[in-house]
């Protein structure tokens, strides 16, 4: 060790700042996840469609989002939307929309994988009693796929929690931005960044743990 003298007590006085930042981080994460589900659930189902013109645009969306960095998506929406569409949005709204669109692509992939994981015999059994494709999806396939999708959904939620730090690049006062601000006041970057990591671990790890437990439970029951 280089003999650095940790002085955590200095930043502990500023704990409400971390609470405020964590609250914003959680808010952004929940809102982005919700939007991601609203986009991703139908997108995942449409990606399985037999009709090409339904499938193709959704596939394009998923591939473009997955092959570009979330940070680029955020700055693109933040700086290009106002110019291209004359749509000026607040920084927080931008983050929710950008991360929501981002998450939607990953949720679509989770939905697709979930549907594919259902035994092909289930589709055949439903067909054999004359059930329509839409009804088969709703009554036979999705109830079975849904369970398998829950652990990766929770995992994705934890991912967005971490991705939400990108909001600091457009000055949204979430955890990272609050921390940077605090450093400008107290000049203790090591303490602040270390504590920031601890806070993130505390709000992210429970979700990862939950996802793992649920997955283990599904495996036991199978």
């Amino acid at each position: 060790m280089s003999g650095y003298e940790w002085q955590f007590h200095i930043i502990l006085d500023y704990w409400p700042i971390f609470v405020r930042g964590a609250w914003t981080t959680l808010k952004l994460t929940f809102a982005s996840t919700l939007l991601g589900l609203v986009i991703g659930l139908p997108a995942g189902i449409l990606r399985q469609s037999k009709i090409r013109w339904l499938r193709a645009p959704v596939s394009l969306y998923v591939e473009v989002i997955r092959a570009t960095p979330a940070l680029v998506q955020i700055v693109w929406i933040y700086y290009c939307f106002p110019i291209l569409f004359g749509l000026q949005m607040g920084a927080e709204t931008t983050i929710v929309i950008a991360l929501g669109i981002h998450t939607g692509a990953y949720v679509a992939e989770i939905v697709r994988a979930g549907i594919n994981a259902v035994d092909a015999g289930q589709f055949m059994a439903a067909k054999s009693i004359g059930m329509s494709g839409a009804k088969t999806l709703r009554r036979i396939i999705l109830p079975q796929a849904g369970q398998k999708m829950i652990p990766p959904f929770i995992n994705e939620f934890a991912n967005i929690m971490k991705l939400s730090t990108l909001a600091s690049t457009i000055a949204v006062y979430e955890l990272l931005q609050e921390s940077n601000n605090l450093i400008a006041t107290v000049y203790r970057p090591l303490e602040v960044y270390t504590f920031l990591a601890v806070v993130f671990f505390c709000i992210t790890y429970p979700w990862i743990w939950l996802s793992q437990r649920y997955e283990a439970r599904l495996r036991r029951r199978a």
Partner: peptide, 20 residues
Amino acid sequence: TNRQRARMGMVFQNFNLFPH
């Protein structure tokens, strides 16, 4: 086609009951 299938019953090797 579904209407036709509904008039024929089918039993599969792997049962394919709806597990839920």
